[in-house]
């Protein structure tokens, strides 16, 4: 009991350090413009000023950026999981000579900094006319997500007792049927965990979106927010706080329901990486 008492101040301090900035962020997003100059920054507003959100959403185009992020994130997520799981199945379950070499190739990608592929991709997208389209982001997200997906899924298939899949092969199912009807349903939990991890990588990407897309109407939430604060940040604090809060809200909602899974998934990703 004495131990608990000794640590209580530390725990309180920790909670304040983690939570207060976020609370402050949201409370500031509800202040009227004049309240920023007449009151200290930590004071709560007298009335809730929702106008900041309206301004950030429409004039600041946060709504557009959101839509773009959704449009590009989910198809990329689907394809990276699909292609990666297929490849992992082909590498781990099937028997062929070069499989370890191919696996090594995939894994090598985990350590490569984005900067190493940025210029060639930029030139490639420029030449093929894909620059400033969603295709550039889509293709890049799928590719850059493959190493972790392949790695994660090969270790999943490796841990699987081989009899399970072999039994259905002996029953006369083709490999494609085995993959879709047995392997994927069985791996559903692992795939879902991986989906969480990849979601955050894609949703929170800044550098690819910054490099390959310059049209405002195609910007994603991260580049959009950067653009927003570049234009409004210094002067219009209310809408700026509202824009930041808006960027945080979807993550917060997702986290509210899936925090345990997200924590497990992300740390598992580190252990494997």
């Amino acid at each position: 009991m004495r131990k608990r008492l000794f640590f209580t101040p530390f725990i309180i301090l920790l909670v304040i350090l983690e939570a207060y900035p976020l609370v402050w962020l949201v409370s500031s997003s509800l202040k009227a413009p004049y309240e920023f100059t007449t009151q200290p920054i930590y004071a709560f507003s007298e009335k809730l000023w929702w106008g900041n959100y309206a301004k950030a959403w429409t004039e600041g185009k946060i709504g557009v950026y959101f839509r773009n992020s959704v449009i590009v994130t989910f198809p990329s997520l689907f394809l990276v999981l699909f292609l990666g799981t297929m490849a992992a199945f082909g590498i781990e379950i099937m028997r062929w000579k070069l499989k370890n070499v191919v696996l090594f190739f995939f894994l090598a990608g985990i350590m490569i900094p984005v900067q190493m592929i940025l210029l060639p991709l930029f030139v490639f997208y420029y030449r093929t006319g894909l620059l400033d389209t969603r295709w550039a982001l889509f293709l890049t997200y799928v590719t850059y997500g493959l190493p972790l997906t392949v790695f994660f899924m090969t270790s999943y298939f490796q841990a699987l007792p081989p009899e399970i899949l072999e039994a259905s092969i002996l029953d006369g199912a083709s490999l494609i049927q085995v993959f879709f009807r047995v392997a994927v349903p069985m791996a559903a939990n692992a795939i879902f965990t991986l989906a969480m991890v990849q979601f955050f990588f894609i949703w929170n990407d800044l550098i690819f979106s910054l490099t390959f897309v310059s049209k405002t109407e195609l910007r994603t939430i991260q580049t959009g927010l950067l653009n927003f604060v570049g234009r409004f940040g210094q002067i219009e604090w209310g809408p700026t706080f509202a824009a930041i809060s808006l960027a945080v809200i979807p993550t917060f909602l997702l986290y509210l329901f899936l925090s345990r899974l997200i924590m497990e998934g992300l740390t598992a990703g580190a252990l494997k990486g």
Partner: peptide, 11 residues
């Protein structure tokens, strides 16, 4: 304490 890990970095 884990929450900031998943927040958009720009935010």
């Amino acid at each position: 304490v884990f929450f900031p890990v998943v927040l958009p970095t720009v935010a």
